[in-house]
Nucleic acid binder design. Structure first.
Lengths: 236, 236
DNA sequence: CGGTATCCCCCGCGATACTG
DNA sequence: CAGTATCGCGGGGGATACCG
């Protein structure tokens, strides 16, 4: 992008970070994605061409390092400069929780993205000991993308878009909107379970464990604080 | 701008803040500008049309409030949501000091912008008691924009682009690049004075006071820390 | 899988002129 | 001073095909 023609360090930083998508790519890297297609799944509306460009720019700016991983597959990792962006991305997210929380439209409620996010935020230690398949069913989504499966095989987690062909151990049924609200910390998971807006079907043991291994978004604590403040001030 | 199609609060926030120029306008508001033309002076490469658009967007997002000031002149002020952006802008600037400090090109060294920034970061209490005119002369700039005058009339400060027609009390001669380095905290003001890369001409009293009332950029402390670290690690 | 190359369209933005 | 209206362009980025 053409720069800002300013010596101010905010402007200098924004010449690197300010372009469309860039900070979301950084967010994905912070969250632990490192392969090209992994990154792409985290920003599904971004074209591969554009992701490629942005990664190149970030590399030349010293924010990202491209290196060969195991098997020679390319991987992208944050440099020290990139890791230093973590508090910035984090505070932007917290600000967004508080002030940019517009009503989510249908377009924002992408269940695939939600599942992708969830899949990498599981408490592996709290997972069931045995191989387990959990099915999610989002009633408010078109049939083409309303069913997902998590194959939990400690410590591995795999997200499947089609039935993995094993018996399902636990079924989770809810609306995508509800699950997103919970994920973002705007609703309590246990409250939604009690209200039966999220229903579980399977052995009691797996039902009870569910709320333990399903971690929420990094921003859920801020969302909860926000919801709480709203309730106290009567805006809830 | 078209959004990101994500429920993530970072994406939501960036839909509001992520467009080109937006955070620089917020920076100007944080620094205390409130009139349309004041804001424009802080982002000289932005067109009035675009500034107008951005202000409207920020207003509709609840970051900026437009109201009538004294005399009915419109003023723009940050709302609480806008003020909450201060730590974000600040940490972006500090990151930029550390990691995005590319070599400044001629285009980045706008002396008018530098003077505009300086003029609103003076320690009014430390100013001389009497009305004083300080002239700046940047040897490395074309004649059309290498002289500026500050009219200091406690507690008022006025930046003049043409000789205000009073005798000059103190003359400051240097290069714009040097002054920017000092302003950003990459060089010590007193060191630059000692090295006679900034020279003063005028009464001893005014010369001595100069370094007291000339505050530096908010990011100068971070710049100094950075320069110090570089020196210690031998990269100075 | 992990990208590049190419074409093409659209809209973000600057320039200019005008208004209250 | 504080903007709005209008027009026209350039390049950012999407779509598609291709490659190692």
């Amino acid at each position: 992008m053409r720069g800002y023609g300013q010596f101010c360090s905010v402007a200098q930083a924004l010449e690197v970070l300010g372009e469309r998508w860039t900070l979301l790519v950084v967010r994905e890297l912070i969250e632990g994605s490192s392969r090209f297609n992994e990154l792409l799944r985290g920003v599904p509306l971004m074209s591969r061409t554009l992701l490629s460009q942005r990664l190149k720019t970030l590399e030349s700016c010293g924010v990202v390092e491209r290196r060969k991983g195991e098997g020679g597959a390319p991987e992208y990792h944050l440099t020290e400069a990139g890791r230093d962006l973590q508090p910035i991305v984090s505070s932007i997210g917290i600000w967004g929780q508080r002030w940019a929380h517009r009503e989510l439209t249908r377009d924002d409620l992408d269940p695939t993205l939600l599942m992708w996010d969830m899949q990498r935020r599981l408490d592996v230690d709290a997972l069931p000991e045995r191989r387990t398949v959990v099915q999610f069913w989002f009633r408010d989504m078109p049939a083409s993308k309303n069913r997902f499966w998590l194959r939990l095989d400690k410590p591995d987690v795999e997200l499947c878009l089609h039935n993995p062909g094993r018996d399902v151990d636990l079924k989770v049924e809810t609306k995508c909107r509800t699950m997103v609200d919970v994920w973002m910390g705007h609703r309590e998971l246990r409250a939604a379970l009690r209200a039966r807006e999220i229903t579980l079907d399977g052995p009691r043991r797996l039902q009870r464990a569910f709320a333990d291994w399903l971690l929420l978004s990094y921003f859920a604590p801020a969302g909860r604080a926000q919801a709480e403040a709203g309730r106290l001030s009567g805006r809830a």
